[in-house]
Design a protein around this nucleic acid. Structure first.
Length: 478
DNA sequence: ATGTGC
C-alpha cells in the first residue's frame, strides 16, 4: 500500500519500528485497499510519531476512518503505562468527549411522514444550534460545577432524564477524577450558557429509520427493530472543552520541556501521567467529558418532550440505546504481553467497543457486548455495531467513530453550495435545517469517506460486529 | 471542534 508498511491480514497493516527513528512500538492500522487509496501520508506519519511517545504499550493504532489531526491522527488509539507513560491533549482532541447517542422511539416512518417538516422545525426550535449557540433550557450558572463532576447524572437528578439513561452511557455518563479546580475561569464562562446546545461543524441531530438488521439477537437486546424511527445526537463539550484543551496544551508545552520529553512534533505536547501537570490535564479533561455527557442528556430531554407531545407517547417509550465518547482518555485495564495492566487509553476519533463480559457494560448486555454507535455523513447510513473479544485483544477495545473527512471544509465550501446540497437531499426525502446555508456545504455527503466501507472494514477485521443500519429522514446541522 | 485567523 505504502512503502515500508507491512500487510498483517486482509485489512490490517503494520508500520514497523524502523519506519521513523525513535519508535518504541510498531504502528497498526485497519484499512481496505480502496480506503488506502485516499489515505493521507501525513496521517500515517502522525501514527508513527505517536509510537515514539514515552510509555506507549503494544501498538500505536489507527482505525479505517484515519485522517490528519492535531498531533495525533483522528481515528487514533494509543495506550500508555501508568508508571512511565504520558498523557497528551493531542491524543484526545479539542472537542473533549465529542460523542454520539441513539434514542429509539415507538413510532414508524409512516407515523411521521406527513409531519416531518413540523417535527424537524420543532426540534430545531428547542435544540440551539450553530457557533456560539446559547441554552434554551434555564440552567443556573451554579449548576456548572455539578455538571462537570456528575455528568449526565446531574441532568437526571434535575429532571432531564431517567436512571436507565445512565446505565446506557459509557462510564454511566460521568467519569471519575474530575476536578473543577483545574478548569479555568474562561472555560467555565464559556460553558455556563452552552448547556443543551448542539454546536456546529459535524455536530448534528438526526431522525433516522432502521432499515436493515444484521444481528437480530444483538438488535433485540439493544432495543432496536426494523422500521423504527430513532434519533441520533452528535455533539460534545462546546466552548468549555475547547478552552480546557487550549489552556492545558499551553501548560503541557512547558511540562514537555521540564520533563525533557523529546517529541517529533510539538503538537504532541504531553506530560507524565503521574506528574502534577499530567494529573491536572486528566482532571480538566474528565470535567469537560462530564459536561459533554450532561449536554447530550439535556438535548435528549428536549427531543423527548417534543416527540411525546407530537405523537402522544410516554417519555419512557424513548429509551437510550447507548451513548459513546469519541474523544477521551481513560484509565482502563487491558491485557498487554499476557499480563493484565492499567493503562491510559487515548481515543481520538475512535469509539470504545468493549466485548462481552467487559466491565462497565449494563448487566443485560454482558453476554452481548457494548453497543457501538457509528454516525454516517448527512444523507448516508449510520450503523449500530457491537464490541467484540477481538477488539479487546487487538485495539484496547476500540473501533472506528464515523466516516472521516476526505475534503477540507474550505475546499468543500468552494466546490459545493449549501442550497444545492440541501436540494439533493430533499429529493431523497431528507429534510435539512441549519442556522445558515453555508453550514450545509462543508458537511455534504461527498466530503466524507463512505461510511459503509469504513464499517465493513471494522466488521471484517472483527474489531466490532454489524448489528443494524439506519437511514436519515431529517437532520439538524450546526 | 472553536465567541472559526498571530
Amino acid at each position: 500500500m505504502i512503502d515500508g508498511v507491512v500487510r498483517i491480514t486482509e485489512n490490517e497493516w503494520e508500520v514497523p519500528c524502523g519506519y521513523i527513528p525513535g519508535m518504541r512500538v510498531p504502528g497498526r492500522f485497519f484499512l481496505s485497499e480502496s480506503l488506502g487509496r485516499i489515505l493521507e501520508p501525513g496521517a500515517l506519519a502522525q501514527l508513527a510519531n505517536v509510537a515514539t511517545l514515552p510509555g506507549i504499550v503494544k501498538h500505536a493504532l489507527a482505525m479505517p476512518d484515519i485522517h490528519w489531526g492535531y498531533g495525533f491522527p483522528i481515528g487514533g488509539v494509543a495506550a500508555f503505562s501508568l508508571d512511565d507513560g504520558i498523557i497528551s491533549p493531542g491524543g484526545v482532541g479539542f472537542d473533549i468527549n465529542c460523542g454520539v447517542r441513539l434514542l429509539t422511539t415507538p413510532v414508524s416512518l409512516q407515523d411521521i411522514n406527513n409531519r416531518k417538516k413540523d417535527l424537524i422545525d420543532q426540534l430545531f426550535h428547542v435544540v440551539p444550534t450553530g457557533v456560539g449557540a446559547k441554552s434554551s433550557q434555564k440552567i443556573p450558572s451554579h449548576a456548572l460545577d455539578e455538571m462537570m463532576i456528575k455528568g449526565a447524572r446531574w441532568a437526571v437528578e434535575n429532571g432531564y432524564g431517567n436512571e436507565r439513561d445512565l446505565v446506557r452511557c459509557e462510564e454511566a455518563g460521568g467519569m471519575m477524577g474530575a476536578s473543577i479546580k483545574t478548569v479555568s475561569a474562561k472555560a467555565r464562562q464559556r460553558g455556563i450558557p452552552q448547556g443543551g446546545t448542539l454546536g456546529s461543524g459535524n455536530h448534528f441531530l438526526e431522525l433516522q429509520v432502521v432499515r436493515e438488521i444484521f444481528d437480530p439477537v444483538a438488535a433485540k437486546a439493544f432495543g432496536i427493530r426494523d422500521g423504527q424511527v430513532c434519533c441520533m445526537i452528535h455533539c460534545g463539550s462546546r466552548g468549555l472543552g475547547h478552552q480546557v484543551c487550549t489552556d492545558h496544551l499551553k501548560l503541557l508545552e512547558t511540562a514537555t520541556k521540564k520533563y525533557q520529553i523529546k517529541l517529533p512534533d510539538r503538537q504532541l505536547a504531553c506530560a507524565p501521567i503521574s506528574s502534577p501537570e499530567g494529573r491536572d490535564y486528566f482532571s480538566a479533561m474528565a470535567s469537560s467529558a462530564n459536561y459533554a455527557w450532561a449536554n447530550r442528556q439535556l438535548i435528549t430531554h428536549a427531543v423527548r418532550e417534543v416527540l411525546a407531545k407530537m405523537f402522544g407517547i410516554e417519555y419512557d417509550e424513548m429509551p437510550l440505546v447507548y451513548d459513546v465518547a469519541h474523544n477521551v482518555a481513560k484509565i482502563e485495564e487491558h491485557r498487554v504481553d499476557d499480563k493484565r495492566m492499567q493503562v491510559c487509553v487515548h481515543r481520538k476519533g475512535a469509539t470504545r467497543a468493549f466485548g462481552p463480559r467487559s466491565p462497565d457494560l449494563p448487566s443485560d448486555l454482558s453476554t452481548i457486548g457494548q453497543p457501538v454507535i457509528i454516525p454516517g455523513s448527512m444523507g448516508t447510513s449510520s450503523y449500530v455495531l457491537c464490541g467484540t473479544a477481538t477488539a479487546m485483544d487487538k485495539t484496547f477495545g476500540s473501533t472506528c467513530h464515523g466516516a472521516g473527512r476526505v475534503m477540507s471544509r474550505s475546499q468543500a465550501k468552494k466546490r459545493l453550495s449549501g442550497k444545492e446540497v440541501a436540494a439533493n437531499l430533499a429529493k431523497e426525502g431528507i429534510i435539512v435545517r441549519a442556522p445558515h446555508e453555508n453550514a450545509i456545504a462543508d458537511e455534504a455527503p461527498d466530503v466524507y469517506k463512505p461510511s459503509d466501507e469504513v464499517v465493513r472494514v471494522v466488521h471484517d477485521a472483527g474489531i466490532s460486529r454489524l448489528v443494524a443500519r439506519l437511514v436519515p429522514v431529517g437532520v439538524i446541522k450546526g
